[in-house]
Design a protein around this nucleic acid. Structure first.
Length: 568
RNA sequence: CGGGGCGUGGCGCAGUCCGGUUAGCGCGCCUGCUUUGGGAGCAGGAAGUCGGAGGUUCAAAUCCUCUCGCCCCGACCA
């Protein structure tokens, strides 16, 4: 492609509304443009990178024995109502109506649709197992789109769904899919790590996420030197208990005007946050419950859900909190709290003389003692585990890192097939629900993750596998006949050889073109200028290492192909 | 949704507090000449309903009301 004819709008300055490296560089290098919040145009360079990644994903999916299909973006509400997700998925499900007022969802994921296909078409265990996948635009009306293409409302995803007669078969495919993901991310030169994950809105039993290590990542991963790795939501561990050996003191009421947060109250009283206990009111499948957690800790809602045997646990709204506690948000406490279950974290049990909300506006209680001053329904492990806690497996201290979640795999079991009555006839003549797995991979997000890990101060440094072009030819001065002719010949020869080449034939100053070349970051740059042509050479420069080599003008195309091959 | 901030040529910004010439600056863009190895020089030029609506005023980018959009921090997930 000739740069002079291509839509590659680069910018010298950083865009004002981009925070992360990948977002900034994707805008500056002209890969993407925002249409509206969380919705992006992919310009030629961005789209070529997307397609390179897609192609690798396809190759590995096909190698793993999957079949590519394409399902519609639009699906009828009734299908989502069958599984209950029309309600459960919440506001994130992007709903539209047709001219008759009938409701549809723009697909955020396709379990319902693929299960509908399979229940209509597959009858026998003899047809199992198999895996279907697609690469398609997905829609999720995110609470907060951000970081460009990393968290978009419209994005490109590969989603795969496997169907089995039993768990053993699912386990085998699950492993194979995780292996495929490993190969994909290795081919893309990513530093990544598979970690145990919670199942969230998709559901199912086991799940793993593939995390690309990045400080700008939105996910916190808990790791142990014993090899354990899990998302913070999923991580199991032990919070070190605090025992002071103090004797219980008499309960006191204290005025805490307008102090609603742990920070405010602990600062006001001059005590450590762990001397406070937070009381958080949740709605769990319709029940109202109070969760108690030490002031220096957060509740893990997934764990709380497990403790309660509830599918959906959400923080209660302000009205519910006032109704239950008789006080505005910020002053909830367990003392005298009637009519709700009180679930406390294990670390609350040994505490002595703690501070809690008074269930009365602007009032807290001091020297509260569990057991003496209030009763809990049950003690459970409901704390979010973090760096410094001890590993549930080996007891060593846990560490953490940040990552971008680029893919996730789930063992769904019969979660969808059961409620959608998707069954097959097994060997024993009995109809059974399909055992299912699903495997998502964010394609557009992966491109951003690649840039997060592969850039320098000058711009993107593409790994060859994802680069929009293999080579850039940079003609220093297109007004020079010699330069132009040499560049054109090289351009033709490389293209004829099947090399993807971007030819910077613009009539611009050399500085501009060098800067743009670094910004766009193709693996190999070939500079054609009078200075080197006089010596009968062109200059090849490897973007990643900066290594520069004189290449004789005659036979340059062959030499450049050799260099490219060495880069991959 | 809660908290913070921003909307002024394509991009980055100043001007707004304290209303008052023709709304500026840098980059980019167009034309010409010169230049050509790390974001060139000179000359000329195009391009802005100051996010939108309503209001106050002799006068509004600037003040008031409403509204739309965007970004950042938090609760979500590929």
């Amino acid at each position: 492609m000739r740069w002079s004819k291509a839509l590659i709008p680069t910018h010298k300055e950083d865009p004002a509304d981009a925070e992360t490296v990948s977002h900034r560089l994707m805008l500056r290098a002209g890969l993407i443009r925002k249409l509206t919040s969380g919705v992006y145009n992919y310009l030629p360079l961005g789209w070529r990178a997307i397609r390179k990644v897609e192609e690798i994903v396809r190759e590995e999916m096909d190698r793993a024995g999957c079949q590519e299909i394409l399902m519609p973006v639009v699906s009828p509400a009734e299908l989502w109502q069958e599984t209950g997700r029309w309600g459960i998925y919440g506001k994130e499900l992007w709903r539209v109506q047709d001219r008759n007022g009938r409701f549809f969802a723009l697909g955020p994921t396709h379990e319902e649709i693929v299960t509908d296909i399979v229940r209509n078409e597959v009858r026998s265990y003899r047809e199992l197992p198999f895996t279907l996948y697609q690469i398609q635009t997905k829609f999720r009306d995110e609470l907060r789109p951000r970081f460009g293409v990393v968290r978009a409302r419209e994005f490109i995803m590969k989603d795969a769904y496997s169907f089995h007669r039993d768990d053993d078969s699912l386990d085998e495919t699950y492993r194979r899919m995780c292996d495929a993901y490993t190969r994909i991310f290795e081919r893309l030169d990513l530093t990544f790590r598979p970690v145990e994950a919670a199942t969230g809105a998709i559901g199912g039993s086991t799940s793993h996420e593939f995390m690309v290590l990045s400080d700008t990542g939105e996910s916190e991963v808990i790791v142990c030197e014993c090899g354990y790795a899990a998302t913070d939501e999923r991580a199991e561990g032990t919070v070190r208990p605090i025992e002071t050996g103090e004797s219980p003191l008499p309960l006191e009421r204290i005025d805490t005007p307008d102090m609603k947060t742990i920070e405010e109250v602990s600062e006001f009283l001059g005590i450590e946050p762990w001397r406070l206990v937070k009381t958080i009111i949740y709605e769990a499948d319709g029940r109202t419950v109070a969760a108690l957690i030490r002031g220096d800790r957060e509740v893990n809602e997934a764990k709380l859900g497990m403790a309660l045997g509830a599918d959906l646990v959400v923080p209660a709204g302000a009205e519910t909190i006032e109704k239950v506690t008789g006080a505005p948000v910020g002053f909830s406490g367990p003392v005298g709290l009637e009519g709700v279950e009180i679930i406390a974290d294990h670390t609350v049990e040994p505490l002595v003389n703690i501070v809690v909300g008074g269930n009365e506006s602007d009032v807290h209680l001091k020297n509260v003692n569990p057991g003496r001053d209030f009763r809990t329904t049950e003690f459970h492990d409901i704390a979010l585990i973090g760096r410094g806690d001890s590993c549930a497996r080996c007891g060593k201290e846990l560490d953490s890192f940040r990552g971008i979640e680029v893919s996730q795999a789930f063992k769904l079991g019969t979660k969808y097939s059961s409620c959608m009555k998707a069954t097959f006839l097994d060997e024993d003549g009995v109809g059974k629900p399909f055992v299912m797995g699903c495997y998502g991979l964010g394609v557009s997000r992966t491109v951003a993750a690649i840039i997060e890990q592969h850039h320098d101060d000058d711009g993107i440094v593409w790994p060859t596998s994802a680069a929009p072009f293999d080579v850039e030819i940079l003609a220093v001065n297109v007004k020079s006949d010699d330069v132009r002719q040499a560049a054109e010949v090289l351009y033709d020869e490389l293209q004829a050889a099947g090399v993807a080449v971007l030819y910077d034939d613009r009539d611009d100053s050399p500085g501009t073109k060098f800067k743009d070349a670094d910004l766009v970051g193709l693996p190999l740059r070939v500079t054609v200028g009078d200075r080197s042509l006089k010596r009968g050479v062109v200059e090849a420069r490897v973007r990643r290492t900066g290594e520069q080599t004189d290449v004789p003008r005659d036979g340059a195309a062959q030499e450049i192909q050799r260099m490219l091959a060495a880069l991959t």
